[in-house]
């Protein structure tokens, strides 16, 4: 069981506000990318996020572009998981492939506010927040294996003998 501080956002937060398109060909390191996370939505985020924090959101988090920096930015900002009522399809894939846990939970965003603390129990696949408990739906085993392996890149590195 782990505890996490949460950042709560609404419905349909798109990839352009998670990581602006104008930076996509110029910012290269994950740290530089993380410095602009959520810039056009919540300028306080990048400066006050702590490692281990979790994002909680409404429907359709990460809709829009296929740009995976919208995942990278949050991962390197220290975000441990994203819990949303639903995800943009490409964003969900990018989370798995970047090794950042996407959790589908239709209810949680109604029960927490930014700054609250929640508990994640990976073993029991449960979220506990402000006296409520929510089940975490399981991923298919082959997809879970990619996530557990740290994402697509570490998997390829093992395949091509890099590690």
């Amino acid at each position: 069981m782990t505890t996490h501080r949460v950042w709560v956002y609404g419905d349909s937060v798109n990839t352009d506000v998670i990581f602006p398109g104008k930076y996509t060909y110029t910012l290269k390191t994950p740290e530089d990318i993380a410095a602009h996370a959520l810039e056009d939505l919540d300028p306080t985020f990048a400066v006050s996020v702590h490692p281990g924090d979790v994002i909680v959101a409404g429907r359709n988090w990460g809709n829009g572009s296929s740009r995976e920096q919208a995942v990278t930015a949050l991962k390197y900002a220290g975000i441990a998981a994203i819990i949303a009522a639903s995800f943009g399809g490409l964003y969900f894939r990018n989370c798995i492939n970047q090794g950042l846990w996407p959790i589908v939970c239709p209810e949680l965003h109604h029960h927490v506010r930014t700054g609250d603390t929640i508990m994640l129990d990976r073993a029991a696949m449960q979220i506990t927040a402000n006296g409520h408990t929510f089940a975490i739906p399981p991923l298919s085993p082959s997809v879970q294996a990619i996530l557990d392996g740290g994402g697509l890149l570490p998997m390829l590195q093992r395949r091509f003998g890099q590690v």
Partner: peptide
């Protein structure tokens, strides 16, 4: 279908990518 950069690198490297049939 659109894919992310890491997914595209994986496709260059292996010619294939996992996909859940929608």
């Amino acid at each position: 279908m659109g894919v992310g950069r890491t997914e595209l690198a994986a496709l260059w490297a292996t010619g294939e990518l996992w996909l859940r049939v929608p």
